[in-house]
């Protein structure tokens, strides 16, 4: 997955962003007073965050509401100036070189549509063709490929207001990628989208990624992360608390797995299973139990051998610990 020779296309160094807001009060006297003296409140939305992204990566930015994800995306897309630190994307400083830089990137915001409500997506695509000066032949070729990949052939000619949310979101992807950006930012790209459309979008992103497009993805949907991300950056209250490969995140709590065991006859008393490295996760019934096995203490092969000795086993399913559990644990460590 990670080839060492790939070059860094995005680097964030000690990035900090502070917002200044004013205290507001409702009462008339306070409002009048606030015309003259206003109490300033400084909020640090991003605090000293650094990370790198290599070409061709898909990096997931994870964090709770207010963790600073959107602020970072805004800075990376050149929309917002940082308070401190350095950002370099595709050899540009986004906020300084904005008007040239943004021609090389794409962005999909799940909550902010770039399509035009009363007219078909096709017209909005043509608008982008003019804005990004895409040559006719390249435009036709890319449009055909993307609409085919996303199954949009019969959608792009209908007014946006008549489209389903999933169809609209797919069109947002076409809109964001027609000019063949090398770097694409996705902010909650599958919010509210149904299962099939989501799968389709995931496949599309993977396909574009094979072409060498780098993706930065923020989402609350961990399925997006598990399906797409190679690397993960976790933010908590404006600070980076984790950055590594997805596989490393999965092993973060140790080499733990949950194992669901169903037996033919009644299970022996719990003590029979509970030895160092094995913990009872849930006792479902007298014939079914969920255990958590720590591979670092008790190797999986040894555990399975012992289970086999018991001889009554009807079915076993082994699962990795969900990343939701891992992320929760990481938040708690930094609370």
């Amino acid at each position: 997955m990670s080839a060492p020779e790939r070059r860094t296309v995005l680097s964030v160094r000690r990035l900090t962003k502070e917002y200044v807001t004013h205290e507001r009060r409702g009462a008339l006297a306070a409002t009048l007073k606030s015309l003259f003296v206003r109490k300033k409140i400084t909020v640090r939305a991003v605090n000293n965050v650094s990370f790198d992204v290599a070409q061709g990566d898909i990096v997931g930015l994870i964090g709770e509401n207010g963790a600073g994800k959107s602020t970072i995306i805004k800075i990376l897309t050149g929309v917002l100036f940082p308070t401190g630190g350095e950002v370099k994307v595709l050899d540009f400083v986004p906020y300084r070189d904005r008007s040239r830089y943004v021609a090389h990137i794409g962005a999909v915001f799940g909550q902010k549509s770039q399509l035009i409500w009363d007219i078909p997506p096709m017209d909005a695509f043509r608008l982008n063709k003019a804005i990004y000066a895409i040559p006719d032949s390249a435009y036709a070729e890319r449009l055909e490929r993307m609409t085919a990949l996303l199954g949009l052939e019969r959608v792009v000619g209908r007014p946006v207001r008549t489209l389903s949310l999933g169809e609209r979101m797919k069109c947002e992807f076409v809109m964001a990628m027609l000019h063949r950006p090398r770097m694409v930012f996705l902010d909650e790209p599958t919010i509210g989208v149904d299962l099939l459309a989501k799968e389709n979008i995931h496949a599309f992103i993977r396909e574009m990624n094979r072409d060498g497009v780098t993706f930065i993805l923020t989402t609350h949907d961990l399925e997006d992360i598990e399906q797409l991300a190679h690397r993960v950056v976790i933010l908590n209250k404006g600070e980076k608390v984790f950055e590594d490969e997805l596989a490393v995140l999965k092993r973060y709590l140790g080499d733990k797995k949950t194992i669901r065991v169903t037996t033919k006859g009644p299970l022996p008393p719990a003590g029979e299973f509970l030895r160092p490295g094995v913990a009872l996760f849930e006792s479902v019934s007298e014939k079914e139990v969920v255990l958590e096995v720590n591979g670092a203490i008790l190797p999986m092969s040894e555990f399975l051998a012992r289970l086999w000795e018991f001889g009554q086993v009807q079915n076993i399913s082994i699962q990795e610990i969900g990343i939701a559990e891992v992320i929760k644990a990481i938040y708690q460590e930094h609370a």
């Binding site: 929309v79 943004v102 915001f109 770039q114 990004y132």
Partner: peptide
């Protein structure tokens, strides 16, 4: 923001 994502002035 969306407007600022367009290249040019």
């Amino acid at each position: 923001d969306l407007l600022l994502l367009k290249p040019g002035s």
